[in-house]
């Protein structure tokens, strides 16, 4: 959906947005510049931020320990601001696969991954992930071995989760930058694995 042009009628809710924004500007609570700057700031929050954190953890054992201990502080170490939230990073291993959801709404590690995808906010994902994660993951094309436990983390407004995917085999000696390119958004939600070195 594109932004509505000048000659197309606004929907009721678009009208509401314009009106509310103008009222808040008139009241001196926000400025148009602030709104534009905040939109841009959010646009800059992409999964590449999360990928940077993951790749750094893959290549620095001590950093990884700190990340698992206190996600918020460890992100701040890399200059990534995690405003007033507790970030919990959960590590995938051959024994445990982690996946995140927000059953009540849409809480998501926005500071590291940006705005959540539509499906993350959908009724079907929110309802079923906590009850039949294996089936849902299979729908994403991810088959988790039976002997691997699946842990589903239900996020809240104040506590967000990020999955630390397993580092793919065959990446020994890779630079952080090269590794980061293997870390997808979905792998940090837990509905996919990190890309394999040879896969596209």
């Amino acid at each position: 959906m594109k932004d509505q042009g000048k000659y197309q009628a606004l929907t009721y809710y678009q009208l509401m947005e314009v009106s509310l924004r103008e009222l808040l500007v008139e009241k001196g609570l926000v400025t148009e510049q602030q709104v534009a700057a905040t939109v841009e700031d959010m646009r800059r929050r992409t999964p590449e931020r999360g990928a940077r954190v993951v790749a750094h953890a893959w290549t620095h054992h001590e950093y990884k320990a700190r990340l698992l201990e206190d996600g918020t502080r460890a992100c701040e170490e890399l200059g990534l601001d995690v405003p007033a939230l507790k970030l919990v990073v959960v590590e995938n291993t051959p024994q445990v696969h982690n996946v995140i959801v927000c059953t009540l709404c849409s809480c998501y590690p926005r500071m590291l991954l940006g705005i959540p995808p539509d499906w993350y906010k959908s009724r079907n994902y929110r309802s079923r992930m906590v009850r039949e994660p294996r089936a849902v993951l299979a729908e994403f094309g991810l088959k988790i071995p039976r002997q691997t436990r699946i842990r589903v983390h239900d996020s809240t407004a104040d506590m967000r989760y990020l999955v630390l995917p397993m580092r793919p085999a065959g990446t020994r000696g890779w630079s952080e930058e090269r590794l980061a390119a293997l870390v997808t958004r979905d792998s940090m939600i837990g509905v996919a694995l990190a890309k394999q070195p040879r896969s596209k």
């Binding site: 939109v39 079907n124 994403f140």
Partner: peptide, 22 residues
């Protein structure tokens, strides 16, 4: 109970981004 997850994604429209910003 619910249906299959439809893996829909859409690029957010400007007005949606402004709601987020507000």
């Amino acid at each position: 109970p619910a249906g299959k997850v439809k893996r829909a994604e859409h690029d957010y429209a400007e007005w949606e981004r402004r709601v987020d910003a507000l």
